[in-house]
Design a protein around this nucleic acid. Structure first.
Length: 815
DNA sequence: TATAGTGAAAAG
DNA sequence: CATCGCTTTTCACTATA
């Protein structure tokens, strides 16, 4: 399951950091590591420049088009970084692989930039790769202005035409590149905002992004007033720059709200909308002007169906979470993880598990339903079993396919694919609805079966789990599990196979669905084996075939290595796993970073050190929604943020934690994205803005959270109509003292038992046990999904116990 | 040089 | 008729002192 394919539809041009070291000597790093990294970089740069000089001398015949240019490439480009590098240098330009802020670059070449990068590169001319290509083709340096990367993040202007409306003017508002004063101006504004937020005081005026110069509404004294407030101020800012004329009018940023209540969007007509904006007086005639985002939303939401499915519906949040597959997936996963970790905790404290000496053979099973959602839903529609079937919310073009059966896969249909695409591949696709209840029931039976096996179980998701059955298998083999006795190994493998067969039979019998089982010496190999096992099968990777099987997999077949990392590796010539083996660990670390580099080095050789059932404590709790967000005024946005905080508060309470740090996540329509994204009520192409605040004291109070979150939102001053996604997250969690029982001293036993970095009273925080209160809270919490709920009433009492003991609270059947 | 904060990627 | 694009963890990088 999952939505990996959403990447295809999402912002594919998302920036990929370039760490390309385009020569081969990995040893240069180790040779100089004692001299420090900066020295290494310095020498690296010199070396690169030398190479450039060499290349330049070899291409004297070519016109020196880029004579006075020094360029740097950022992110993923077409042509690639290496090609651009070669082109620019051979046509007389300078090139810098690394921007250290001190070296002068005249141009940065990029296809698109994240908002952060926009700030970072504000000092440079940012141009599209086509500038280089076209200039060479034209035989002369073309004006870079025509290839300016559209400032997608912050400008309100849309280039070109949209919906038949004439767009007022070309967006010329890129800040100039020579801007020492600009930079400090920006910095000071950022500080102002930060201070305003920290003091919780309403800044009297808020400055937006440097290039944006957009306004922010002043805070209304009352909610009522806010609703009635018709528009934001218009700040028209002009900067005379060396390179740029900046001219912005913030026409689009007005708020359409002019009515007095929340029903505005129900009653606003197009005419009203135009009049509302036109009343501002400073604008072009209404007919010529684009609708503001708020006006657009108002019109959109006149359709009752739209209103019902969006933030215009007061029950939107609950309704959305009821339907969202990703939300279900996430909560199921968290629940299962907590329950199984609690169970493991209980077991390990009952009996110390014998530590296996290193070198002992291991048998890890990776068990996974075959197209889980589809399989479960098909039980109620058996006649469709052999037809191509997918699970989705509807048959509209933007509906995402959560699961598809194998007949559908034969057409190339994949999980996460949009319906439009899938229908193109297979026109008579049958679409079945979600049945979350049935999935939960099936999963419960699945886990019942798995937990009946004596082994260490780790939950991956609702339909997927790992089981370490080494002990059982080695016992069956009759050896110590290390000696290379052929007979013992054979018997161990036979045992593992038998366990898998029996498990598959049990699950089939109980759920009517097929699971596949991959078996290997570690988690990685179990996962790789699973690929070969599917569908409806099992596969045990024997030690002697490990390297061969891995060799021909692609990098992205490895768990943890997907789109982004694969692309990085492809740039250094790696496509298959066996290609990785040809590289030194240093080279990989240089390319991917220390952890990732080492991991892929080991993975390529079949090594995976992670153990089944590793205990991890939860570090964050969050709630976000990035669909159906369509506001008509600021008040609605703030109300919605508040309800998100309410939800977050609820979730924190369920986990019996509070948090010291809150992060607000905002998605805003990208400037070059249309008002109506391809997916109905989707977020479309967006820029993201996350901001976190440290709260003086840990809290889970919804009003406190709401106040902070709204304050951050206001700080950005985005037009509410352009908001497309909102979320709140808590970090730096602390256990909640159980105040239900009455007394609520600042220190409590359960609090001391948790291992947090800074216990309120370190002196008393001795022998902290990892994972006590939080796990039991998860166990105790009223989960929609319990592995075993016979005892749920019993475990529910854990919440009110003063001393919370997860062992006591475990359902007896899990012991 | 250690550490904290931040953003991106990956997973199902 | 549409559509339900979440949530957590880990890692790399940067800034800071």
């Amino acid at each position: 399951m999952g939505s990996r394919l959403e990447k295809n539809s999402k912002d594919v041009r998302k920036r990929i950091e370039q760490h390309t070291f385009d020569d081969e000597d990995g040893e240069e790093y180790s040779a100089s590591k004692f001299a420090g990294f900066s020295d290494y970089m310095r020498r690296k740069k010199i070396k690169l420049q030398n190479l450039d000089a060499e290349l330049r001398s070899q291409t004297l015949d070519k016109p020196k088009i880029f004579r006075n240019i020094v360029a740097h490439v950022n992110g993923y480009t077409q042509p690639s970084l290496n090609d651009l590098h070669r082109l620019i240098v051979s046509y007389g330009g300078g090139f810098l692989q690394y921007l250290d802020g001190k070296t002068a670059v005249t141009h940065v070449i990029a296809s698109s930039l994240t908002p952060k990068k926009k700030v970072e590169f504000a000092r440079y001319r940012i141009v599209k790769p086509a500038w280089v290509v076209d200039s060479i083709e034209a035989g002369k340096l073309l004006p870079w202005e025509n290839y300016r990367v559209v400032d997608e993040g912050v400008t309100q202007k849309v280039l070109g035409f949209e919906g038949g409306q004439v767009v007022s003017q070309v967006n010329n508002k890129r800040t100039g590149y020579r801007d020492q004063t600009e930079t400090s101006w920006y910095t000071s504004q950022v500080k102002d905002i930060a201070e305003g937020l920290n003091s919780s005081a309403r800044p009297s005026e808020i400055i937006d992004e440097p290039q944006d110069h957009s306004n922010v509404d002043r805070k209304p004294e009352t909610l009522h007033e806010e609703l009635a407030e018709g528009n934001h101020e218009n700040n028209i800012v002009e900067h005379d720059e060396e390179y740029e004329q900046i001219h912005i009018d913030n026409n689009e940023q007005e708020v359409a709200g002019h009515s007095e209540d929340n029903s505005l969007e129900q009653t606003l007509t197009v005419g009203d909308a135009k009049r509302a904006a036109g009343s501002n007086g400073s604008m072009a005639p209404p007919e010529k002007r684009q609708l503001t985002a708020e006006e657009h939303n108002a019109i959109l939401l006149q359709n009752p169906h739209m209103a019902k499915s969006s933030t215009a519906n007061p029950d939107f949040l609950n309704q959305y979470y009821r339907e969202s597959r990703l939300h279900h997936l996430s909560t199921w996963k968290a629940d299962l993880k907590a329950q199984l970790q609690a169970r493991a905790q209980e077991r390990s404290s009952q009996q110390q598990k014998p530590k296996r000496p290193p070198g002992t053979r291991r048998y890890v099973m990776h068990v996974d339903f075959d197209s889980f959602f589809a399989a479960v839903s098909l039980r109620k529609n058996p006649e469709l079993k052999d037809k191509p079937v997918v699970i989705a919310h509807g048959s509209g073009p933007g509906s995402e396919i959560a699961s598809c059966n194998y007949p559908a896969r034969k057409f190339g249909v994949k999980n996460g694919m949009w319906m439009k695409h899938a229908l193109g591949l297979c026109s008579d696709l049958k679409v079945l609805p979600y049945d979350y209840k049935a999935y939960e029931d099936a999963s419960k039976l699945f886990y019942d079966s798995i937990l009946a096996i004596p082994g260490i179980v780790q939950s991956i998701s609702i339909d997927e789990a790992l089981i370490d059955v080494s002990e059982l298998c080695i016992k069956a083999g009759g050896s110590d599990g290390r000696a290379s006795s052929e007979g013992a190994v054979y018997r161990e493998q036979a045992k593992a196979d038998e366990l898998a067969t029996s498990l598959r039979g049990t699950v089939r019998e109980k759920t009517g669905c097929e699971v596949s089982v991959g078996i290997g010496n570690n988690i990685l190999l179990a996962k790789v084996a699973l690929r070969k096992a599917k569908p409806a099968g099992q596969y045990l990777i024997k030690p002697e075939e490990v390297l061969d099987i891995l060799a021909d997999l692609t990098v992205s077949d490895l768990p943890g290595f997907a789109y982004s990392i694969s692309n990085k590796l492809e740039e250094i010539g790696v496509k298959l796993v066996k290609d990785i083996r040809a590289l030194t660990k240093e080279k990989l670390i240089n390319t991917l970073g220390p952890k990732t580099g080492e991991k892929i080095f080991e993975y390529s050789r079949g090594i995976d050190k992670q153990e089944v059932g590793d205990q991890v404590i939860r570090k964050s709790v969050s709630a976000e929604i990035n669909w159906g967000i369509r506001f008509v005024n600021q008040q609605q946005a703030e109300d919605f943020v508040y309800s998100l905080c309410e939800e977050l508060s609820k979730r924190l309470l369920e986990q019996l934690v509070k948090g010291k740090q809150m992060t607000m996540k905002i998605m805003r329509k990208a400037a070059d994205a249309g008002m109506d994204p391809p997916k109905n009520l989707g977020h479309g192409k967006c820029d993201t803005f996350n901001k976190s605040v440290m709260l003086g004291v840990a809290t889970n109070d919804k009003d406190t959270l709401g106040k902070e979150a709204v304050s951050i939102l206001r700080g950005y001053g985005f037009p509410p109509g352009e908001l497309r996604g909102l979320g709140v997250q808590m970090q730096k969690l602390e256990p909640l003292k159980p105040s239900v029982g009455g007394t609520s001293g600042p220190l409590d036993s359960s609090q001391r038992r948790l291992q947090f970095k800074k216990p309120d009273n370190p002196a008393q925080g001795k022998t902290p046990t990892r994972f006590t209160s939080t796990t039991s809270a998860a166990t105790a919490k009223k989960s929609p999904f319990q592995i075993d709920n016979k005892d749920s009433s019993h475990s529910a009492t854990a919440k009110v116990r003063k001393s919370v003991d997860p062992i006591e609270e475990m359902p007896s059947t899990l012991r």
